[in-house]
Amino acid sequence: MILASAMEMIHNALPAAVLALGLATLFAVVLLIASIKLRVETDPKVEEVYNVLPHIDCGACGFAGCASYAKAVVANPELIGRCSPGGAETSVAIGRALNLQISGGGAPSRPIVHCRAHREDKLFHAAYDGIESCTSANAQPDVQACHFGCLGFGDCTRACKFDALHIVDGLSTVDYDKCTGCGACAKACPRNLIQMVPFTQDNMMTVACSSRESGKTTRTFCKVGCIGCGICAKQSDLFTVADNLAKMNYESYAPSEATQTAMDKCPTGVIVSRGQTAPADRQPGQKAAAATA
Protein backbone atom coordinates (compact mmCIF):
# COMPACT_ATOMS: atom_id res chain seq x y z
CA MET A 1 0.00 0.00 0.00
CA ILE A 2 2.58 2.46 1.07
CA LEU A 3 4.90 1.44 -1.71
CA ALA A 4 2.16 1.79 -4.29
CA SER A 5 1.28 5.33 -3.22
CA ALA A 6 4.94 6.30 -3.20
CA MET A 7 5.34 4.99 -6.71
CA GLU A 8 2.29 6.96 -7.76
CA MET A 9 3.71 10.12 -6.28
CA ILE A 10 6.95 9.67 -8.16
CA HIS A 11 5.03 8.91 -11.30
CA ASN A 12 2.98 12.08 -10.98
CA ALA A 13 6.00 14.25 -10.10
CA LEU A 14 8.17 12.93 -12.91
CA PRO A 15 7.15 15.38 -15.67
CA ALA A 16 7.63 18.31 -13.32
CA ALA A 17 11.06 17.10 -12.31
CA VAL A 18 12.09 16.59 -15.92
CA LEU A 19 10.82 20.04 -16.84
CA ALA A 20 12.66 21.70 -13.93
CA LEU A 21 15.87 19.90 -14.79
CA GLY A 22 15.49 20.84 -18.44
CA LEU A 23 14.93 24.50 -17.61
CA ALA A 24 17.88 24.54 -15.21
CA THR A 25 20.13 23.17 -17.94
CA LEU A 26 18.81 25.69 -20.43
CA PHE A 27 19.44 28.64 -18.08
CA ALA A 28 22.85 27.33 -17.20
CA VAL A 29 23.78 27.22 -20.86
CA VAL A 30 22.36 30.70 -21.50
CA LEU A 31 24.23 32.11 -18.54
CA LEU A 32 27.41 30.35 -19.60
CA ILE A 33 27.20 31.83 -23.09
CA ALA A 34 26.33 35.25 -21.65
CA SER A 35 29.23 35.19 -19.26
CA ILE A 36 31.61 34.48 -22.12
CA LYS A 37 30.05 36.84 -24.63
CA LEU A 38 29.35 39.76 -22.27
CA ARG A 39 32.52 39.51 -20.24
CA VAL A 40 33.70 42.86 -18.79
CA GLU A 41 37.44 43.16 -18.80
CA THR A 42 38.47 44.43 -15.36
CA ASP A 43 41.93 45.61 -14.76
CA PRO A 44 43.35 43.44 -11.99
CA LYS A 45 45.40 46.47 -10.99
CA VAL A 46 42.27 48.48 -10.23
CA GLU A 47 41.06 45.72 -8.00
CA GLU A 48 44.42 45.52 -6.29
CA VAL A 49 44.47 49.27 -5.67
CA TYR A 50 40.87 49.21 -4.47
CA ASN A 51 41.77 46.54 -1.94
CA VAL A 52 44.39 48.71 -0.25
CA LEU A 53 42.07 51.73 0.04
CA PRO A 54 40.19 52.34 3.31
CA HIS A 55 36.71 51.69 1.76
CA ILE A 56 35.00 54.53 3.57
CA ASP A 57 33.97 56.55 0.49
CA CYS A 58 34.60 59.87 2.24
CA GLY A 59 35.31 61.78 -0.96
CA ALA A 60 38.45 63.50 0.32
CA CYS A 61 40.28 62.53 -2.89
CA GLY A 62 37.77 64.44 -4.98
CA PHE A 63 36.22 61.31 -6.49
CA ALA A 64 32.82 59.78 -5.76
CA GLY A 65 34.25 56.97 -3.66
CA CYS A 66 37.11 54.53 -3.24
CA ALA A 67 36.21 52.52 -6.37
CA SER A 68 36.26 55.52 -8.67
CA TYR A 69 39.47 56.79 -7.07
CA ALA A 70 41.07 53.36 -7.68
CA LYS A 71 40.13 53.54 -11.34
CA ALA A 72 41.41 57.09 -11.65
CA VAL A 73 44.68 56.43 -9.88
CA VAL A 74 45.47 53.45 -12.13
CA ALA A 75 44.83 55.62 -15.18
CA ASN A 76 46.86 58.50 -13.80
CA PRO A 77 49.41 57.54 -11.11
CA GLU A 78 50.01 61.24 -10.39
CA LEU A 79 46.85 61.11 -8.30
CA ILE A 80 48.58 59.01 -5.64
CA GLY A 81 48.55 60.74 -2.30
CA ARG A 82 45.02 62.07 -2.53
CA CYS A 83 43.73 59.57 0.01
CA SER A 84 44.08 61.45 3.26
CA PRO A 85 42.33 58.92 5.54
CA GLY A 86 44.76 56.24 4.34
CA GLY A 87 47.72 58.55 4.67
CA ALA A 88 51.28 57.72 3.70
CA GLU A 89 50.76 53.99 4.24
CA THR A 90 48.06 53.78 1.61
CA SER A 91 50.13 55.82 -0.81
CA VAL A 92 52.99 53.35 -0.44
CA ALA A 93 50.61 50.42 -0.87
CA ILE A 94 49.12 51.91 -4.03
CA GLY A 95 52.63 52.45 -5.28
CA ARG A 96 53.45 48.82 -4.65
CA ALA A 97 50.36 47.70 -6.53
CA LEU A 98 51.36 49.85 -9.49
CA ASN A 99 55.04 48.90 -9.28
CA LEU A 100 56.06 52.43 -8.46
CA GLN A 101 58.49 53.62 -5.88
CA ILE A 102 56.65 55.89 -3.48
CA SER A 103 58.33 57.36 -0.51
CA GLY A 104 56.20 58.25 2.53
CA GLY A 105 54.82 61.48 1.03
CA GLY A 106 54.18 64.73 2.89
CA ALA A 107 52.88 65.30 6.34
CA PRO A 108 49.26 64.29 6.92
CA SER A 109 46.89 67.21 6.71
CA ARG A 110 44.61 67.83 9.65
CA PRO A 111 42.00 70.49 10.33
CA ILE A 112 42.60 73.42 12.63
CA VAL A 113 39.62 75.43 13.85
CA HIS A 114 40.58 79.10 13.82
CA CYS A 115 38.48 80.11 16.80
CA ARG A 116 38.94 79.29 20.45
CA ALA A 117 35.97 81.03 22.03
CA HIS A 118 33.80 78.80 24.17
CA ARG A 119 30.37 79.95 25.24
CA GLU A 120 31.59 81.93 28.25
CA ASP A 121 34.26 83.69 26.16
CA LYS A 122 31.74 85.10 23.71
CA LEU A 123 30.02 88.26 24.84
CA PHE A 124 26.68 89.61 23.61
CA HIS A 125 24.76 86.73 22.22
CA ALA A 126 21.48 87.37 20.44
CA ALA A 127 18.63 84.97 21.17
CA TYR A 128 18.36 82.78 18.10
CA ASP A 129 15.55 80.27 17.77
CA GLY A 130 15.77 79.52 14.08
CA ILE A 131 16.99 76.41 12.31
CA GLU A 132 19.85 74.83 14.23
CA SER A 133 22.45 74.87 11.52
CA CYS A 134 25.44 77.14 11.09
CA THR A 135 24.56 77.90 7.47
CA SER A 136 21.06 79.08 8.45
CA ALA A 137 22.28 81.03 11.46
CA ASN A 138 25.04 82.66 9.44
CA ALA A 139 22.41 84.15 7.13
CA GLN A 140 21.22 86.21 10.11
CA PRO A 141 23.95 88.85 10.41
CA ASP A 142 23.51 89.59 14.10
CA VAL A 143 23.19 86.07 15.48
CA GLN A 144 26.33 86.61 17.51
CA ALA A 145 28.41 89.69 18.07
CA CYS A 146 31.50 88.11 16.49
CA HIS A 147 30.84 87.83 12.78
CA PHE A 148 33.88 85.61 12.27
CA GLY A 149 33.84 83.09 15.11
CA CYS A 150 32.42 79.61 15.56
CA LEU A 151 28.61 79.53 15.68
CA GLY A 152 28.51 76.16 17.39
CA PHE A 153 25.52 74.60 15.62
CA GLY A 154 27.68 71.76 14.35
CA ASP A 155 27.58 71.74 10.55
CA CYS A 156 31.12 70.37 10.78
CA THR A 157 30.08 67.66 13.24
CA ARG A 158 27.41 66.46 10.84
CA ALA A 159 29.84 66.53 7.93
CA CYS A 160 32.41 64.36 9.75
CA LYS A 161 32.14 60.66 8.95
CA PHE A 162 34.63 59.65 11.60
CA ASP A 163 33.04 61.14 14.74
CA ALA A 164 36.16 63.27 15.08
CA LEU A 165 34.56 66.68 15.51
CA HIS A 166 32.30 67.76 18.31
CA ILE A 167 30.83 70.98 19.60
CA VAL A 168 32.29 71.33 23.06
CA ASP A 169 30.68 74.13 25.00
CA GLY A 170 29.85 76.13 21.89
CA LEU A 171 33.10 75.54 20.04
CA SER A 172 33.95 73.07 17.30
CA THR A 173 36.72 70.85 18.67
CA VAL A 174 38.74 68.29 16.69
CA ASP A 175 39.50 64.87 18.14
CA TYR A 176 42.88 64.30 16.50
CA ASP A 177 42.94 60.62 17.52
CA LYS A 178 39.97 59.91 15.28
CA CYS A 179 40.56 62.49 12.52
CA THR A 180 41.66 61.13 9.13
CA GLY A 181 42.09 64.49 7.45
CA CYS A 182 39.40 64.07 4.78
CA GLY A 183 38.59 67.80 4.88
CA ALA A 184 34.79 67.45 4.87
CA CYS A 185 34.52 69.78 7.89
CA ALA A 186 36.50 72.53 6.17
CA LYS A 187 34.01 72.46 3.28
CA ALA A 188 30.99 72.48 5.61
CA CYS A 189 31.90 75.53 7.68
CA PRO A 190 30.00 78.59 6.37
CA ARG A 191 32.50 80.93 8.05
CA ASN A 192 35.57 79.16 6.63
CA LEU A 193 37.04 78.73 10.10
CA ILE A 194 38.53 75.32 9.46
CA GLN A 195 41.80 75.16 7.56
CA MET A 196 43.52 71.95 6.49
CA VAL A 197 47.12 72.21 7.70
CA PRO A 198 50.04 69.84 7.05
CA PHE A 199 50.89 68.45 10.47
CA THR A 200 54.66 68.23 10.33
CA GLN A 201 54.64 67.58 14.06
CA ASP A 202 52.23 65.95 16.46
CA ASN A 203 51.15 69.32 17.80
CA MET A 204 50.97 72.48 15.77
CA MET A 205 50.98 76.01 17.04
CA THR A 206 48.26 78.20 15.61
CA VAL A 207 46.44 81.50 15.94
CA ALA A 208 42.97 80.33 16.90
CA CYS A 209 41.00 83.36 15.72
CA SER A 210 39.62 84.70 12.44
CA SER A 211 38.39 88.12 13.50
CA ARG A 212 39.42 90.91 11.16
CA GLU A 213 37.82 93.51 13.42
CA SER A 214 40.01 96.14 15.03
CA GLY A 215 41.51 95.06 18.34
CA LYS A 216 39.28 97.45 20.23
CA THR A 217 36.14 96.02 18.66
CA THR A 218 37.29 92.42 19.07
CA ARG A 219 37.79 92.99 22.78
CA THR A 220 34.17 94.13 23.14
CA PHE A 221 32.76 90.79 22.07
CA CYS A 222 35.40 88.17 22.78
CA LYS A 223 37.69 87.42 25.69
CA VAL A 224 40.08 85.33 23.63
CA GLY A 225 40.14 87.03 20.23
CA CYS A 226 43.22 88.16 18.31
CA ILE A 227 43.59 91.91 18.70
CA GLY A 228 46.29 92.25 16.07
CA CYS A 229 48.79 93.80 18.49
CA GLY A 230 51.75 92.26 16.66
CA ILE A 231 53.69 91.08 19.73
CA CYS A 232 53.99 87.61 18.20
CA ALA A 233 55.31 88.98 14.91
CA LYS A 234 58.06 90.79 16.84
CA GLN A 235 59.13 87.53 18.43
CA SER A 236 59.13 85.24 15.43
CA ASP A 237 59.04 85.58 11.64
CA LEU A 238 56.53 82.74 11.48
CA PHE A 239 53.80 85.14 12.51
CA THR A 240 52.48 87.85 10.24
CA VAL A 241 49.80 90.37 11.11
CA ALA A 242 47.43 91.66 8.44
CA ASP A 243 43.89 93.04 8.75
CA ASN A 244 44.08 93.07 12.55
CA LEU A 245 44.72 89.34 12.57
CA ALA A 246 47.89 87.33 13.22
CA LYS A 247 48.56 84.34 10.99
CA MET A 248 50.95 81.41 11.32
CA ASN A 249 53.09 80.48 8.33
CA TYR A 250 52.68 76.71 8.01
CA GLU A 251 54.88 76.33 4.96
CA SER A 252 58.09 76.96 6.87
CA TYR A 253 56.72 75.81 10.19
CA ALA A 254 59.50 75.32 12.71
CA PRO A 255 58.69 75.91 16.35
CA SER A 256 61.47 77.42 18.36
CA GLU A 257 62.00 79.25 21.59
CA ALA A 258 60.90 82.42 19.83
CA THR A 259 57.53 80.99 18.91
CA GLN A 260 57.11 79.67 22.43
CA THR A 261 57.83 83.16 23.77
CA ALA A 262 55.27 84.58 21.34
CA MET A 263 52.74 82.08 22.60
CA ASP A 264 53.47 82.95 26.21
CA LYS A 265 53.42 86.69 25.59
CA CYS A 266 50.16 86.77 23.61
CA PRO A 267 47.93 89.04 25.70
CA THR A 268 44.69 87.23 24.89
CA GLY A 269 46.16 83.73 24.75
CA VAL A 270 44.94 83.20 21.22
CA ILE A 271 48.11 81.38 20.14
CA VAL A 272 47.46 77.78 21.07
CA SER A 273 48.64 74.26 20.35
CA ARG A 274 46.48 71.83 18.41
CA GLY A 275 47.15 68.11 17.97
CA GLN A 276 46.96 64.70 19.56
CA THR A 277 48.90 65.62 22.67
CA ALA A 278 48.39 69.37 22.75
CA PRO A 279 48.26 70.95 26.20
CA ALA A 280 45.08 72.63 27.35
CA ASP A 281 44.52 76.20 26.16
CA ARG A 282 45.80 78.95 28.38
CA GLN A 283 43.03 80.94 29.99
CA PRO A 284 43.06 84.65 29.18
CA GLY A 285 44.90 86.52 31.89
CA GLN A 286 46.59 83.33 33.06
CA LYS A 287 50.34 83.77 32.73
CA ALA A 288 52.97 81.84 30.87
CA ALA A 289 54.07 79.63 33.75
CA ALA A 290 50.82 77.72 33.63
CA ALA A 291 50.97 77.40 29.89
CA THR A 292 54.44 75.90 29.71
CA ALA A 293 53.77 73.52 32.58
Partner: peptide, 11 residues
Protein backbone atom coordinates in the same frame (compact mmCIF):
# COMPACT_ATOMS: atom_id res chain seq x y z
CA UNK B 1 10.66 77.25 9.15
CA UNK B 2 10.10 76.48 5.49
CA UNK B 3 11.50 79.76 4.18
CA UNK B 4 14.53 79.33 6.43
CA UNK B 5 15.28 75.93 4.96
CA UNK B 6 14.84 77.19 1.42
CA UNK B 7 17.17 80.14 2.08
CA UNK B 8 19.71 77.74 3.60
CA UNK B 9 19.41 75.48 0.57
CA UNK B 10 20.05 78.38 -1.78
CA UNK B 11 23.19 79.31 0.17
Amino acid sequence: ELTGYIKTGKI
